[in-house]
């Protein structure tokens, strides 16, 4: 056996420590995942209803002018890029960043302005010299309505001030724990005419209802996007940490067997030496 016993023991200790760390991180991610997933599951039916309602009333009232419907003259595009703050979540960030990169290339890098959510995305944009309008870091996948509100008013401000003619959001869509897909949605300007045209009675009059509804709809849309992205992040991290833990366990079992073999070989070797020297003394 080439390795000596002490080296192997050291490696076992190191791997056991790593195992402890990764399994703790796994448990943390699982609780975070459960929390955001519950929020997401509760919210999805609500959003679907709100969206159908919104599309119906908008196609009905498409002459109503809310500044969010009309495009502005700006040729620039704002991309809101949602990534995670920390790594250790497998290909989660790599995928969304590659996806965003493709989008930026297709539109022309000089036209695109970025609002970065998550440190990884921010660092990426800085590295490649994209124009970053604002950034939100240190969230650690924790959703709050406050945060959502800030992001929506930020994006709305960018659009209304004419800094960008269109606002897109790139995020990771959480389909199931195993299927996560980088996704691009158009956030602003709002488009008319996706729903079935319906004549509604409204109370108060339609213009006022739509005026009140638009911000609520934007907020709900961003809330869904953030929840999807955060749930995807946590589920990616849970899986990555689970794999790391499993690997550490496997490695540790292998090393344990190796240690026993080496120890046994050493003992046999010692015995052989003693016996052979005793034989030699007998002459």
């Amino acid at each position: 056996m080439p390795q000596n016993l002490r080296q192997i023991k050291n490696r076992i200790r190191v791997i056991d420590n790593a195992h402890k760390v990764t399994s703790a991180m796994e448990m943390i991610s699982v609780t975070k995942l459960n929390r955001t997933e519950k929020l997401l599951r509760g919210f999805k039916p609500y959003f679907l209803k709100l969206e159908t309602l919104f599309n119906r009333i908008i196609s009905d009232q498409n002459k109503l002018s809310s500044p969010f419907f009309a495009g502005n003259d700006s040729k620039d595009i704002c991309l809101c890029l949602i990534s995670s703050d920390s790594g250790l979540c497998g290909v989660h960030n790599a995928e969304i960043l590659r996806f965003a990169e493709e989008f930026i290339k297709s539109k022309g890098a000089e036209r695109v302005k970025v609002v970065a959510i998550g440190r990884r995305g921010l660092n990426h944009c800085k590295k490649y010299g994209y124009q970053v309008l604002s950034s939100y870091t240190g969230l650690n996948g924790r959703y709050s309505d406050n945060l959502c509100d800030k992001i929506v008013s930020d994006l709305a401000g960018i659009f209304l001030n004419g800094k960008a003619g269109e606002v897109f959001v790139a995020y990771t869509d959480f389909k199931t724990a195993l299927i996560r897909r980088p996704t691009l949605v158009k956030f602003l300007n709002l488009e008319v005419g996706k729903g079935v045209e319906t004549k509604y009675l409204t109370e108060p009059e339609a213009g006022e209802v739509v005026k009140g509804l638009v911000p609520k709809y934007l907020f709900a849309k961003m809330r869904l996007i953030l929840l999807e992205a955060f749930t995807a992040e946590h589920s990616a991290r849970t899986i990555a940490m689970k794999m790391a833990t499993d690997n550490a366990e496997e490695l540790s079992t292998k090393l344990l067997l190796l240690r026993n073999k080496v120890r046994q070989a050493n003992i046999t070797q010692d015995m052989l030496e003693i016996i052979s020297s005793a034989e030699a003394l007998k002459g």
């Binding site: 319906t198 004549k199 509604y200 009675l201 409204t202 109370e203």
Partner: peptide, 14 residues
């Protein structure tokens, strides 16, 4: 306060 029964016309209200 607004009362709704079955077969109500399409309505949106705050």
């Amino acid at each position: 306060y607004l009362g709704i029964l079955a077969d109500h016309a399409p309505l949106i209200a705050n």
